[in-house]
Amino acid sequence: MSLLRALQAPSSGHALRLTALSVSALALAVALGGCGSSKPQPAPLERFQPVAKLGMAWSQRVVGEAETPVSIAVVANTVTVAGTGGEVAQLALDTGKAIWRADLREPLSAGIGSDGRFAAVVTAQNELVVLDRGAPVWRERQSGRVITAPLVAGERVFVQGVDRAVRAYDLRDGRWLWQYQRPGSEPLALSSQGMLTPFRDTLLVGQGPRLVGLDPVRGTVRFDVTVGTPRGTNEVERLADLVGPAARADDELCVRAFQFSVACFELNRGSLRWSRPQAGTQAVAANDNVVVGADSTDRLSAWKTENGDLLWRVDRFTHRGLSAPAIWGDKLAVADREGYLHLLSLADGRNLARIELDAPLAAAPVVVADQLIVLSRKGTVSALRAN
């Protein structure tokens, strides 16, 4: 079974913490974390005359607090979400009505992956929990912390730890199948949503600044390609993990390398098409024509998917804490830390509309047909439409 057919939508989270895999690296991270500095003031909201209308198709508060990293899984006309407190729910995509709800009564560190029937999360105690229509069916303790949402596809569950090790389990009975970890892993890893996504019959995983294509049945390597070699005087400055969720553009995959670059890969060849330097922290959005991402100051840039040529750049959202963006037809949707969702023209980045949500987003927005699915930090799932 094709992994892509088994899973139609990605999930996301973006806590920006460092996980030390050595004592010296941990000391370095703590030392840097103690160096405080005043935060720059966010750019004021720009006044404009809306030329599009944003409206709610439905909105439901279905889980408790949803602090990052959490995620949204949209597949088989369902929306499955999890809150950080352990609540899990599946909704009908067209109406928002609950199909099932569950409460694991323990905090989560990662979630959620789903194939429409089965769902998988990871608890703060490092246990992978698989549910069948909301009922837990098996658990398996992991060797370390997990931040990236599990991937449920092809009758398997794939889990990636913060140590970048990828493990595969049988979906039905929890039987361990294989483990992969690239030799020579860096001593520091980003404690954030990593890169774990399907492409046809290949499993794509991020290993530091490298994209690795694995055989999902055996865990063997099909290709291994890097976005480049990050430079710096220490391990923190050289940190360039691929940040999820990745953006598919036909047979290409476009990704963010943390504080390093934006890159697009040609998946059929397993090769790098182009890379452009941009010191950002959030995932990018892409379609066949355009790739969009924000840098660390929240300046948005758009490049041609084909060759990486710059199309436009806007700086009116600087320091507003932008989320990962989503391409929505000929529009771009992106939210900020104050809870505003902005709708921009994909052609030139001009403002089209704006709506205020009940809280900032907890996960990257997901586009399904003509709807934009968002999850706020208050646990509210909403389906928006634009015209």
Rank of each mutant, 00 (worst) to 15 (best):
residue 223 F to T: 10
residue 167 R to H: 10
residue 218 R to K: 06
residue 233 T to Q: 00
residue 195 M to H: 05
residue 220 T to R: 09
residue 211 L to D: 02
residue 163 D to F: 05
residue 171 L to N: 01
residue 221 V to S: 09
residue 243 V to S: 01
residue 214 L to F: 01
residue 190 L to I: 00
residue 186 E to A: 14
residue 193 Q to R: 07
residue 242 L to Q: 06
residue 233 T to F: 05
residue 206 G to M: 04
residue 235 E to H: 09
residue 186 E to N: 02
residue 186 E to L: 10
residue 175 R to L: 13
residue 208 G to W: 01
residue 183 P to K: 06
residue 218 R to V: 06
residue 173 D to H: 12
residue 230 P to H: 15
residue 213 G to C: 13
residue 163 D to P: 08
residue 169 Y to V: 00
residue 239 L to V: 03
residue 213 G to S: 12
residue 239 L to N: 04
residue 170 D to I: 03
residue 177 L to G: 09
residue 166 V to C: 06
residue 185 S to A: 13
residue 188 L to R: 02
residue 239 L to R: 05
residue 220 T to V: 12
residue 224 D to F: 02
residue 224 D to I: 07
residue 210 R to N: 12
residue 228 G to T: 10
residue 166 V to W: 02
residue 190 L to E: 04
residue 172 R to Y: 08
residue 240 A to K: 07
residue 195 M to S: 08
residue 232 G to C: 12
residue 222 R to W: 07
residue 233 T to M: 01
residue 196 L to M: 13
residue 171 L to T: 11
residue 229 T to W: 09
residue 165 A to V: 14
residue 234 N to H: 13
residue 206 G to V: 01
residue 211 L to H: 03
residue 215 D to N: 15
residue 176 W to L: 07
residue 202 T to Y: 01
residue 177 L to A: 14
residue 181 Q to Y: 02
residue 217 V to F: 05
residue 199 F to Y: 15
residue 222 R to T: 01
residue 209 P to V: 07
residue 195 M to C: 14
residue 196 L to T: 05
residue 215 D to F: 13
residue 216 P to V: 12
residue 189 A to L: 00
residue 192 S to R: 07
residue 167 R to V: 08
residue 168 A to T: 12
residue 237 E to G: 10
residue 206 G to L: 03
residue 176 W to I: 00
residue 189 A to C: 10
residue 166 V to K: 02
residue 186 E to T: 13
residue 178 W to Q: 04
residue 172 R to C: 00
residue 207 Q to S: 15
residue 240 A to W: 04
